[in-house]
């Protein structure tokens, strides 16, 4: 699955996409198009979140409908610490990572007791709980959200307020996450998780404690998404309960499926297409969702492998 000729249509498409993403700040600088840079920074962050969801959904078969919770948890970790006067990224980010890992551990430990549609619904329920907790934190803005006056401070190592530096930070983190996921799914651990997706009973029968493997995978994905949340909070200088709302989890799922489930670069394609499409359609008409909605329906009905499937990836199941 992972080993394909670099010269296939798909290999070329991925290479071109990465090249364009890498060169985007140059284009933006040359033309003065700041908007493209902001849009694509957001796209990279969502691509990171979607890639983490893809790890559990595409490779692990765990259909989490509450993945946006970790965006919020990572974001709030940064926001709350900044609000309390701790601006150092060396504190904020490890806290964001630790807290999202902890939440993923608790949510995963309980949710993984269920299967199928019950799993979809219980993850949704946990995300809604996180949403209401955030909305109830009056000290940190409650419903209205929390403005972050100073971005994470990395003591001169990297300046997050610089748009180009921030863009490349997101880009590098996204590539690192994809590499990590690549290593995971091709490791023995990843094979067990994928085996459990295909046939859990058989994996158990040959002696693997699938629950523990799946839970570990779930925690890794939640943690990666928490990092995306920390980036998102820095990007918008703002964090509100809305980033945990269930429609946001839905958006992440759409990105994964649009790009192609269980495809390494699929979520990146999915995030680019969905967010650029939103941007284009909203310029074209105020009622852009009336087009996007049926489009999703058609994609589900007719393009089963997602974008990566159209590029010629053989679906593995």
């Amino acid at each position: 699955m992972m080993k394909q000729s670099l010269l296939s249509v798909r290999g070329i498409a991925i290479a071109i996409m990465l090249l364009l993403l890498a060169l985007l700040p140059v284009y933006s600088h040359a033309t003065g198009n700041i908007f493209a840079l902001t849009l694509f920074t957001r796209i990279l962050i969502y691509a990171l979140a979607a890639a983490s969801l893809n790890l559990i959904m595409g490779f692990g078969g765990m259909m989490s409908f509450g993945h946006a919770a970790y965006l919020g948890i990572g974001g709030y970790a940064v926001g709350i610490l900044a609000h309390e006067g701790i601006a150092s990224g060396f504190v904020q980010w490890p806290v964001a990572i630790a807290v999202s890992a902890l939440f993923a551990l608790v949510i995963g430990a309980l949710s993984l007791r269920t299967r199928g549609v019950y799993f979809i619904m219980i993850t949704l329920a946990f995300a809604q709980m996180a949403y209401y907790i955030a909305a109830g934190m009056a000290r940190y803005g409650g419903d209205d959200g929390l403005t972050i006056y100073k971005r994470s401070d990395f003591a001169g190592l990297i300046n997050l307020s610089d748009k180009v530096q921030f863009y490349y930070l997101c880009f590098v983190l996204l590539l690192a996450a994809i590499y990590l996921i690549y290593r995971i799914v091709n490791s023995r651990f990843g094979m067990v998780v994928q085996g459990a997706r295909s046939n859990e009973k058989r994996m158990q029968a040959i002696g693997f404690p699938t629950y523990r493997y799946q839970l570990t995978c779930f925690v890794i994905a939640g943690t990666l998404c928490g990092i995306a949340g920390a980036l998102l909070a820095n990007n918008t200088d703002f964090v509100s309960p809305a980033i945990m709302y269930w429609t946001r989890s839905g958006d992440l799922m759409v990105m994964v499926i649009l790009g192609g489930m269980g495809s390494l670069f699929g979520p990146v394609f999915g995030a680019i297409v969905l967010l650029v499409l939103e941007e284009l359609l909203s310029q074209f008409t105020e009622y852009w969702q009336i087009i996007l909605g049926p489009m999703l329906l058609l994609i589900v009905l007719f393009a089963r492998g997602g974008i990566d499937g159209m590029l010629g990836r053989r679906t593995h199941d």
Binding site: M63, F65, I120, G250, M253, V254, I257, Q289, I290, L292, G293, P294, M295, L296, L297, I299, V300, L301
Partner: peptide
Amino acid sequence: VLATFGLILFFN
């Protein structure tokens, strides 16, 4: 989930 999520956007 995905298809009917699209329908929600459409109806709204």
